[in-house]
């Protein structure tokens, strides 16, 4: 859940035109991208406005994947990526910039 959006999914536009509008180019997570083990932890916090403290199920929990991945990357290599998807290139650029490098910007990123 949310792994695709965290790591790969992005609609790329050039001159107002969507350039990755097919599943050949817009990549979603496959069964091979799935982590080898899943552990769900339920954190119970009642919702102030919901009936009996209830809140929507499903996607609420999904929002935690991106911060978890971003935090793990910062913990491992000391750079924080603030926009999704978190691609390997973004991490490498952030690392190079942290070391003081000035890098060519690229429109397709």
């Amino acid at each position: 859940m949310h792994l695709g959006l965290t790591l790969f999914e992005e609609m790329v536009f050039e001159d107002g035109q969507l350039v990755n509008g097919s599943l050949l180019d817009y990549q979603v997570a496959t069964i091979k991208d799935m982590p080898r083990s899943f552990r769900s932890v339920v954190v119970e916090v009642p919702h102030a406005d919901g009936p009996f403290g209830a809140k929507g199920a499903g996607e609420t929990g999904a929002l935690t994947v991106a911060p978890a991945v971003a935090n793990a990357i910062e913990d491992a290599v000391g750079v924080r990526i603030r926009d999704l998807p978190i691609t390997p290139e973004k991490v490498l650029r952030a690392l190079a910039e942290k070391d003081g490098a000035t890098l060519p910007r690229d429109s397709s990123l």
């Binding site: 859940m1 792994l3 599943l23 979603v28 997570a29 496959t30 069964i31 091979k32 799935m34 899943f38």
Partner: peptide
Amino acid sequence: LSGNLCRCAGYA
């Protein structure tokens, strides 16, 4: 199965 996509992601 890596070429079969599931958007509800019931992969596990």
